[in-house]
Computed example of a mutant assay.
Amino acid sequence: MRRLLVLLPLGLVLAAVVVLSSVEYGMARPSQRIKNLAYVAATAPDFDTERHRLDVYAPRRKAPGEGCPVVLFMHGGNWNSGNKNIYTFVGRRLARQGVVAVVINYRLAPKVKIDGMADDCARALAWTVQHIGEYGGDPGRVFVMGHSAGGGLAAILTTDDGLLARHGLAPNPVRGAILDDPAGLDMYTYLKSRDTGDTQYHDAFGGDPAGWKAWSPIYRLRAGQPPFLLFIGGETYPSISSSSERFRKRLGALGMPPTYQVLPGKKHVPMVLQLYWQHNVIYKELLKLVGAG
């Protein structure tokens, strides 16, 4: 059976990060990690004690007189796996470069579908806007970032004003989005073209084409929205490269061409692993976007 979109569980990421973490102590010293903060009230009927948590990574030395820019990072994992604890290297590296990083968990399929995941991410964003000043961040300079499924969720937060308004975020506070090999930008086109019986993504997106379209951020793009940075692996999955190209063209048609770079030779998992190293093109462009450094 031909599959256009086969995203690896993040076990490979975890294995690689275990190796990298042996030298993380040196990187940790210029930053502080505040772990396992609840972004949903424990009294909420849907509170999940593990998944409704986030970590804040803050620079130990802050510029006097102003808060740092903030990046809210959403992990990937095929919408059914992944954990914020795998991505300490992202939080540490951003904090070391003058950015307050917020790395979150969110509920996963099959427990919830994409609307529940997006709602969790919106609640994490609301928590960030309300509380990040306590950790040296500027609530007026909040950006979103994600890899793989997390990239698709970051795009939803950037484009779905109605979702954010339901959590008190009107106008939309997102100042820009950094998408690292994003999945889910156009699940409608992908699922409409799937082979008969290929229902692996129904756990996350359901079986209704109207829902696939509703949660595909390409159909929510509008003029005047925040800017996008898109980074695509030259050897990534065809579904990611094709949907990202359509996303790029749609932004261009709206008069808002994104920063768009295809990184030669990069496969899907290495696209996030490269964030361990400070001097890569994603951080270079991210820092310019958020105004850090």
Rank of each mutant, 00 (worst) to 15 (best):
G137N: 01
G137A: 04
G137D: 03
G140K: 14
G140C: 07
V142I: 15
F143I: 08
F143Y: 15
F143E: 12
F143K: 08
F143L: 09
F143Q: 10
V144P: 08
V144T: 13
V144A: 12
V144C: 14
M145W: 07
M145E: 13
H147V: 07
H147T: 02
H147K: 01
H147A: 04
H147W: 00
H147Q: 03
S148K: 12
S148R: 11
A149L: 11
A149Y: 00
G150K: 06
G150S: 03
G150P: 02
G151K: 02
G151W: 00
G151M: 11
G152C: 03
L153R: 06
A154I: 04
A154F: 00
A155I: 00
A155L: 04
L157C: 03
L157D: 01
T158W: 08
T159N: 15
T159I: 08
D161M: 06
D161N: 14
D161W: 01
G162A: 12
G162C: 09
L163G: 04
L164K: 03
L164A: 02
L164E: 07
A165Q: 13
A165E: 12
A165P: 01
R166I: 03
R166G: 13
R166H: 13
R166W: 09
H167K: 12
G168M: 13
L169V: 06
L169P: 12
P171S: 09
N172W: 02
N172Q: 05
N172T: 10
N172E: 06
P173C: 10
V174R: 05
V174S: 11
R175Q: 15
R175N: 09
R175I: 13
G176Q: 10
A177N: 11
A177I: 06
A177G: 05
I178Y: 01
I178Q: 05
L179N: 10
D180P: 00
D180R: 08
D181Q: 14
D181W: 03
P182F: 04
P182L: 06
P182Q: 07
P182R: 03
G184Y: 01
L185K: 05
M187F: 00
T189W: 02
T189N: 14
T189Q: 11
Y190F: 10
Y190P: 02
Y190N: 14
Y190D: 15
L191G: 02
K192E: 13
S193T: 14
S193R: 15
S193H: 14
G197R: 02
D198C: 05
D198K: 06
D198W: 04
T199S: 06
H202Y: 15
H202G: 11
H202C: 11
H202M: 10
D203V: 12
A204Y: 02
F205E: 08
F205W: 09
F205S: 00
G206P: 13
G207Q: 14
G207C: 10
D208C: 10
D208V: 12
P209T: 00
A210T: 15
A210L: 14
A210F: 07
G211T: 13
W212L: 02
K213N: 03
A214I: 07
W215N: 15
W215G: 13
P217F: 00
I218D: 09
I218S: 05
Y219R: 04
Y219A: 06
R220S: 14
R220E: 02
R222E: 09
A223V: 05
A223H: 07
A223K: 15
G224K: 09
Q225C: 03
P226H: 00
P226E: 06
P227F: 00
P227A: 03
F228V: 08
F228S: 03
L229M: 08
L229W: 05
L229D: 01
L229N: 13
